[in-house]
Write a protein that binds this DNA or RNA. Structure first.
Lengths: 198, 198
DNA sequence: CTCGTTTTATGATTTTAATCATAAAATGGA
DNA sequence: TCCATTTTATGATTAAAATCATAAAACGAG
């Protein structure tokens, strides 16, 4: 996360997106740095059958889409506003200039990329070698630490739909529903009027 | 990749590992920066059944294991020498000092992490939404660009075993063998005395 | 050169999650 | 408040890759 003052110094603009608006598309060349002011953004891929895989979900203060920007490669996924969202947008050249002038920001970027790489490493191993129960629990426990799940008297509220959990873990929605029920029976989580708590 | 001169200035040491030696283990706290001089290193996880998932394979000049170093988190996977390997090892504090003193190195680190994140994004989507043929081809095509595959008169030699391809794509070795045969029949790749060419 | 290990190979069977079908409950615009 | 859409739910069936079994070929350490 880069401070507002710094971004403004380098000519950032604000842009609003409605729910379901496309921010950028897979295959496009990156031209900007994006940082969320408010709202929620998902990055995802669709395969030939229209099946979705969610690479990540981003919230207030988080940036997204930097890797291909640094590599001059095409976006490997789409970025879509999950709800009405406001975003800081900085042209690539200005962003590079900002980094050159402010070495400490580079360290922030490194930490952010490191965090995302860490998540992807964990989930990649989960998706390819573990059963549904393990995958879902791992995602939920990661979410408690890094997505914005709120704690109340029942525990952490996992505010993902069953479909989203499926799209993040590579499982079908029916499988997620059944898996969550099994996990409830085993006492690993609670279901209180259809909402999942951990 | 950080230059030898710079690493030596900050007190780097060289260490040799024999084939199959463990460089660090999942769950340990990171204390060093690692950069390969020669040889080959794999990072991988094992699930409860002993099934392996290879996170990545690294060669001459490449560094590995930085994300948890920046985050003060435990290693999410093991690092193992695939063959006899020589590695530069720099203590964490010296590495941080090196970065602070040399902002341009930060940019290199960012590009490196961005590259790895890009690979993980592509493979995550493949593993969770595509069939074996698609997964194997994507891995191979990525390997041509980023692993050290050599081109000869038959095309690029994919110098991975079927088992390694399986551990990188989340498939079983028998499935990989059958998939590669199918891909050969479809003309997507060649098999010349058991070696795979693309 | 030899022998144990690894790699590639193939066929038969099983398992597990995907798929298909259907529906009730909840949600959210108009 | 009404209706279309989304979300959760459950049962039956299927398909696809994993598993199991076995073996030949290649490799590599001594």
């Amino acid at each position: 996360m880069i401070t507002v003052e710094l971004l403004e110094k380098y000519g950032v603009i604000k842009k609003s997106f409605d729910k379901n608006d496309i921010i950028f598309e897979e295959g496009n060349l990156p031209l900007h740095y994006y940082q969320i002011i408010s709202g929620e953004v998902k990055m995802s891929n669709y395969n030939d059958d229209g099946r979705e895989f969610i690479q990540g979900i981003f919230y207030n203060g988080q940036s997204f889409g930097e890797p291909p920007l640094f590599l001059n490669q095409k976006y490997p996924a789409n970025a879509i506003a999950v709800e009405n969202t406001e975003i800081f947008i900085l042209p690539k050249e200005n962003f590079i200039k900002l980094l050159e002038d402010n070495p400490k920001v580079s360290i922030k970027i490194i930490e952010n990329l490191a965090q995302r790489l860490y998540y992807k490493s964990v989930m990649a191993a989960e998706i390819s070698t573990h059963e549904p129960e393990h995958r879902v629990l791992k995602l939920i426990d990661h979410g408690i630490a890094y997505f914005n799940f709120q704690k109340d008297k029942n525990g952490y509220l996992i505010n993902f739909t069953r479909q989203q959990i499926g799209d993040l873990t590579g499982l079908r929605v029916e499988t997620v529903i059944r898996t969550i029920k099994t996990l409830e029976k085993k006492g690993e989580l609670k279901i209180i009027n259809r909402k999942v708590y951990r």
